[in-house]
Write a protein that binds this DNA or RNA. Structure first.
Length: 418
RNA sequence: GCCCCCGUCGACUAGCGGCCCAGGUCACGGCCCUUUCAAGGCCGUAGCGCGGGUUCGAAUCCCGCCGGGGGCACCA
């Protein structure tokens, strides 16, 4: 039987990273098995619907690099179908009317059980189950009815969802049984928590895909990181690009305990992916990122600057702060420059006549200068760095000077001396 | 209150009775390299929640406790 899963968010707000991670598991599972992955918006509660949510969800999923098969479906479209099935259940005595609504009759004895693909066997005493409303008095089906009905109609084979749905599962199992349908395999994946062990929220840092995107993370790195939240192939392998994740993912290696987001590890991983890119690819990513963020810096200069920063920043969002001096004026701090007057004077002189004006030649000239002044390169170059880049921390000095050009570099050195 | 789930270094995890006086990755500390910062190389600190069992032997199995999370809607 072909694997078929569905991602089923409710459009009640933006999708946070925990929800994204759950969908990622669905996607990895389906794609690794040649199966299908559907996207269903569960919008039966129209009062809680947020207008932008449906669009935001799709945009997030796409940006991450996941996709789905067929058109996006909406649960609201299944209301008629659900109503029909509800009436059928009433006729069969499996449900009954109650103040205008329809309630499903739950058994009073025995247990409802299933073998959860990540948690193992779960049994719930039926006495625990109350007769639940499956159709509201206004005629709309409730989530706990529409959900299994759609899973049935769409021939979903595996339901991979958050653990907050565990208590819904026995109810849905009962409904499916009453409908005479073989239930799918259920897999309840653990939550993603903030660094204080509490449910992920705004104050923990970025939680939406949009925020990660703005901060300059790249999709494959974020996907890799997210996949590792609750899943590990072997305990050794850490860096796995999307294709490898798809190939290796399996539900039986998804853990049962909740995971905490570690932004520092994400940063590290993003850096790994950034450094692994081919220079051109990296420049492309940088250019489109900056454009997306509203910078109007000249593209050729951004491309020229890309190699200077590729090994040094781990988020594209660090570029403006780190290499902004290449695109606008700087202010060098007189205090930091203290004691560098001699070096600056020498540098101005050396650079003024230097030919060719290349990083290599610049390095040679400045090293000779430092040597002549009896200074260690470390201390000698710092005043120049501050004068030229406006910071104690910068990309390679010689390459930076070359890129800036002789005129601008000299102007900055003069300004610092003044 | 009732029900369900979870509990290995600070974080993500490997471990499914002996291979573990617990391994990998991030973070952290030290050293090396070095024009700053990174990157890279080497070394290191740090953990099986607690208490009982079972067993020749337990991180691994069982029970209890404690701690954390989720659910008990005409929400999804």
């Amino acid at each position: 039987m072909t694997v078929r899963v569905r991602m089923a968010p409710s459009p009640t707000g933006f999708l946070h990273i925990g929800g994204i991670r759950t969908f990622l598991f669905n996607w990895l599972f389906a794609r690794g098995r040649g199966g299908e992955c559907l996207l269903r918006i569960e919008n039966t509660d129209t009062s809680r619907e947020v207008a932008e949510a449906t669009e935001q969800i799709q945009r997030s999923l796409q940006w991450l690099g996941t996709d789905w098969d067929g058109p996006v479906t909406f649960q609201l479209d299944a209301m008629e179908r659900c109503g029909g099935l509800a009436r059928q259940l009433v006729e069969e005595g499996k449900a009954y009317e109650d103040e205008g609504a329809i309630r499903f009759r739950m058994p009073d004895e025995g247990v409802t059980a299933w073998d959860d693909a990540v948690l193992g066997r779960i049994e719930v005493p039926n006495a625990q189950l109350e007769d639940l409303v499956i159709v509201r008095s206004d005629g709309r089906a409730t989530y706990n009815f529409a959900n299994p009905v759609e899973d049935m109609d769409e021939r979903i084979t595996d339901v991979i969802r958050g653990r907050d749905h565990i208590s819904n599962t026995p109810k849905q199992l009962q409904i499916l049984q009453a409908l005479g349908h073989e239930p799918p395999v259920y897999a309840h994946v653990p939550d993603v928590l903030g660094n204080d062990g509490k449910k992920l929220s705004k104050r923990h840092g970025a939680t939406s895909i949009d925020e990660f995107r703005t901060a300059g993370y790249i999709p494959s790195a974020l996907m890799n990181f997210l996949a590792l939240l609750g899943w590990a192939p072997d305990g050794e392998t850490t860096v796995m690009p999307p294709e490898e994740l798809v190939r290796r993912f399996s539900l039986d290696r998804v853990g049962a305990s909740p995971a905490t987001l570690d932004y520092e590890k994400l940063d590290w991983m993003n850096g790994v992916y950034l450094r692994a890119m081919r220079p051109e690819e990296y420049a492309d990513a940088l250019v489109s990122y900056l454009r997306e963020q509203g910078y109007d810096w000249p593209e050729d200069r951004v491309r020229a600057a890309a190699p200077l920063v590729q090994d040094k920043i781990e988020r594209l969002g660090q570029f403006p702060g780190f290499a902004g001096f290449l695109f606008g004026p700087v202010e060098s701090d007189a205090v930091q420059l203290d004691g560098g007057g001699e070096m600056l004077a020498g540098a101005e002189e050396a650079l003024a006549a230097l030919e060719p004006f290349t990083a290599q030649a610049i390095e040679q000239a400045l090293r000779q200068l430092a040597d002549r002044l009896g200074q260690k390169p470390r201390q000698a170059f710092q005043p120049i760095r501050i004068a030229v880049t406006g910071s104690k921390v910068s990309p390679g000095l010689f390459e930076s000077i070359e890129l800036l050009g002789r005129d601008e570099a000299l102007a900055r050195i003069r300004a610092a001396r003044a």
